[in-house]
Design a protein around this nucleic acid. Structure first.
Ligand SMILES: Nc1ccn([C@H]2C[C@H](O)[C@@H](COP(=O)(O)OP(=O)(O)OP(=O)(O)O)O2)c(=O)n1
Ligand SMILES: [Mg+2]
Ligand SMILES: [Mg+2]
Length: 776
DNA sequence: ATCCTCCCCTAC
DNA sequence: TAAGGTAGGGGAGGAT
């Protein structure tokens, strides 16, 4: 279960208090995070998440002038980015710069989208302003004018021409700049312009092109014709472009993809479904495809192939067909069908590590009264998950101050250029642990809780020799040992990771004023190139210093934006650095597997694969040929489509150092969670409430929206593949917003009880919980 | 249109 | 035996 507290409107006073520099004085003295700190004895405070100081990110407390300079900085940066893209894109170099002297500002929703229009300007020699400026903008592009603006046309447009997007499209098609006057927005009609020639005539030939590239794409698009946009790609659908009120034609069922799991969540009437537990034996042989629920089963670096490697010699598959779970939550009173689960309860089952018999109760909520607290002390994911809040406590205010300063001085000097650096420690957990073992550097080493060659403990990090055997983070140790029998396993040393992370960030802050932390071993830097220091040189100095100080190597990437810098780092690893200048972006992306883009995981990658898209080059070509962004948007959603469009071109508008304040705080445990009676469950929930309450206090925030999430073992799921794991679960959640934000543990507990009631949980299933809150 | 709830996906 | 957490982004669909 997880309790999630959303931010609250009512907590503003508390917030502003927390924002004041003075408020962090008490906790900042904890920065050494010694284990003796009494705060760390708090539940789940193994790594001090609860004692995080109350310093907040700058955005809320910034005076308005800061915001102004931020905006100046941002516009300047966006402009610079546009120029860089324009001057280096091979697309543009080969095209007629027909928009030379034209600088557009997009007002409101347009068809096609502003990103597409931007890319036309990019490709054909024009300019694009993200923010309106009377002096810079030459044309305002607008599809639709709301009444308010129509009434005061002159002040809205500042006297500039307000033109329909078709002007741009038709100009591109004509390969010359057309007169904009016929395309002036017709104020009387106020409707979407008629279809431009561009769409009607050119369309079909482009579709042909597409077919060569991605055979199935066309079919997909056809089925999506009723999507949220009128931007269609087939001739016969043209009419919808003429439609004026954009959404008039929206069809109800926007591609409800085969997400059967959703129904489980929303149909809360499963009260009696548990009775089926003993009957339904299941065929859950293929966890990958069954549903999109993220089941935590048999994790491996590379999915199904690993599953296959895993299975032989073990009872994993048998487990899935054994009768469903012994029931763990047993409210005796509830209904009568006790017999079945009772029998299950006694059945010995093959356990995850091949050992027959019951699990050790001390490894679960049943045997350890301090289970949650102890669990968090050993959890690597808890460690990396809470690291950020500890970082904020140490560097938050300082980096904020510098950030502001930096932004101001940038504004004064508009002539400089910036480079983005991404730096990431090599196989961090392993490097730290073997940094003083020279003899191990060439041996395959991994970090894991267990060295059991049959075990289901997860590899946290593997060094590069181990990776050459196929050992990857997230893999079960038995799979790792199967691939690399001589793999050397070391235990975790969280304190050492914390110390090295500190050293790492101390070095980064010393060399650069703009540092954006990503994780304990990874950060972005932004540097100005015109200050003379070559970024390559700076990076090698930083990496050297990291090696000398920590005994561990780091790799780094240098590029024009965060996306490309990150990809450069990947190319540089291990122990290297790599620069991807603008003119090399395209070649770098061309053959890169789509999955390598940050933000594209296995689900999205599979979806794209069904469209015959496997590389960034293909994605770029498809989206361009298909004209364009709207196709991606229909298939993947507005934002995701845009992300695909941008990332496949190496575009990334994010600015280094812009981090917003946190939106939510939560706690969850999905390992070792076993209940016999309802009260076990409530006790556990109370522990999570305590944890969340302490974290709220530690951060100086109060929650207003609380969420309880429950993972319920599927009826047809067998014993979890992973020892003490939660198995194949469906995810449920309910939330509640209260009028006055709180951090009071008593209130939290009452809230969880009430939320818990909303689920109407049956008796014969196993659950684990998460409780979190958000702050509005 | 925009907000809200209940999810899913992603990254470390 | 083993320690499958945390937080943000975003989509679908219903309420307003
Ligand atoms: N599934 C994962 C991924 C990461 N980590 C931890 C261990 C890693 O050492 C640390 C940093 O993650 P990275 O993705 O940076 O991986 P590494 O630093 O281990 O390797 P690389 O050289 O690829 O950066 O986070 C983990 O416990 N489990
Ligand atoms: Mg790393
Ligand atoms: Mg990393």
């Amino acid at each position: 279960m997880s309790l999630d507290s959303a931010r609250s409107g009512g907590d503003s006073s508390k917030r502003s208090l927390a924002d004041s520099p003075a408020s962090k004085s008490s906790s900042s003295s904890n920065s050494k995070r010694s284990k003796t700190n009494s705060k760390e004895k708090a539940l789940g405070m193994a790594w001090g998440a609860n004692s995080v100081s109350s310093s907040r990110s700058s955005s809320r407390s910034s005076p308005f002038s800061d915001f102004g300079s931020y905006m100046l900085e941002k516009t300047r940066k966006l402009r610079q980015q546009f120029d860089a893209e324009a001057s280096n894109s091979s697309d543009s170099s080969s095209k007629n710069p027909l928009f030379h002297g034209v600088s557009i500002f997009i007002d409101g929703f347009t068809i096609p989208s502003n990103q597409e229009l931007r890319s036309y300007m990019l490709m054909y020699g024009g300019r694009f302003e993200n923010y309106f400026s009377r002096s810079r903008v030459t044309h305002i592009i607008c599809s639709n004018l709301p009444d308010s603006k129509r009434k005061n046309m002159r002040s809205f447009s500042a006297g500039l021409p307000v033109v329909k997007p078709a002007w741009i499209l038709d100009s591109v098609f004509a390969n010359r700049l057309l007169d904009w006057v016929p395309y002036q927005l017709d104020q009387l009609c106020g409707n979407q312009p008629p279809v431009s020639a561009f769409f009607s005539s050119k369309r079909s030939s482009m579709v042909q092109d597409t077919l060569e590239v991605a055979g199935r794409q066309l079919n997909m698009d056809r089925s999506f014709k009723g999507g949220a946009s009128n931007y269609v790609d087939l001739p016969e659908l043209h009419e919808s472009l003429v439609v004026t009120e954009q959404d008039a034609l929206i069809v109800r069922d926007r591609h409800v993809n085969a997400d059967s799991s959703r129904q489980v969540g929303t149909g809360m009437n499963d009260e009696f479904s548990d009775m089926l537990d003993c009957i339904s034996v299941t065929s859950n042989g293929n966890p990958q495809n069954g549903s999109q629920n993220c089941d935590i089963e048999e994790p491996t670096g590379s999915k199904s192939s690993d599953v296959r490697m895993e299975v032989p010699g073990n009872s994993d598959t048998e487990c899935e067909t054994t009768l469903a779970s012994r029931l763990q939550l047993t409210p005796e009173k509830l209904h009568g069908s006790v017999g079945t689960h009772g029998a299950d309860n006694k059945n010995p089952t093959a356990s995850s590590s091949g050992v027959i018999g019951l699990f050790n109760q001390r490894h679960s909520t049943l045997g350890d009264p301090n289970f949650v607290e102890n669990y968090f002390k050993s959890s690597r994911l808890h460690f990396i998950g809470t690291w950020r809040s500890r970082y904020w406590k140490r560097y938050g205010s300082r980096s904020n101050d510098l950030k502001t300063q930096n932004a101001n001085c940038c504004v004064l000097d508009a002539s400089y250029k910036t480079a983005v650096i991404h730096i990431d420690m090599d196989c961090f957990f392993v490097s730290v642990v073997i940094r003083n073992h020279a003899e191990l550097q060439d041996k395959p080493v991994a970090i894991c809780h267990s060295d059991n060659p049959k075990g289901t403990a997860e590899v946290s990090s593997a060094n590069y020799p181990a990776r050459s055997f196929g050992v990857k983070a997230g893999m079960f140790v038995r799979a790792a040992k199967a691939r690399c029998p001589h793999l050397i396993i070391f235990p975790y040393n969280f304190q050492a990771y914390e110390e090295v992370a500190d050293q790492f960030y101390n070095i980064l802050h010393k060399h650069c004023s703009k540092v954006q932390a990503v994780s304990c071993d990874e950060a972005f830097l932004e540097v100005t190139i015109s200050t003379g220091l070559d970024p390559e040189f700076l990076v090698s100095r930083i990496r050297n210093e990291i090696l000398e100080t920590t005994g561990c190597t780091a790799s780094a990437g240098i590029a024009g934006n965060m996306l490309m810098a990150r990809l450069a780092t990947r190319a540089a690893k291990p122990n290297g650095q790599c620069c991807i200048p603008q003119e090399r972006v395209e070649e770098h992306l061309q053959l890169l597997p789509i999955k390598a883009l940050p933000g594209i995981g296995h689900v999205l990658a599979e979806k794209l694969k069904k469209h015959n898209i496997q590389t960034c080059g293909q994605l770029r070509m498809i989206s361009k040929v298909m004209l364009m962004l709207e196709t991606l948007r229909r298939d993947f959603g507005a934002k995701t489509g845009e992300m695909l469009w941008n990332h496949s071109r190496g575009l990334d508008n994010r600015l280094v150092g812009v981090t917003q304040e946190s939106k939510s705080i939560g706690a969850e445990v999905n390992w070792g969670v076993r209940f016999k009676a309802l009260e076990d469950s409530h006790r556990f929930l109370a522990d999570l409430c305590k944890e969340v309450s302490l974290r709220l206090l530690g951060c100086g925030v109060r929650g207003r929206t609380f969420t309880l999430k429950i993972k319920r073992r599927r009826k047809d799921a067998g014993e979890p593949v992973k020892y003490m794991g939660c198995g194949d679960c469906e995810n449920l959640s309910h939330s509640m917003t209260i009028p006055i934000a709180t951090d009071d543990i008593g209130v939290l507990q009452r809230i969880t009880k009430q939320l818990f009631g909303c689920f109407h949980l049956g008796k014969s299933a196993q659950y684990s919980y998460m409780f979190s809150c958000s702050f509005q």
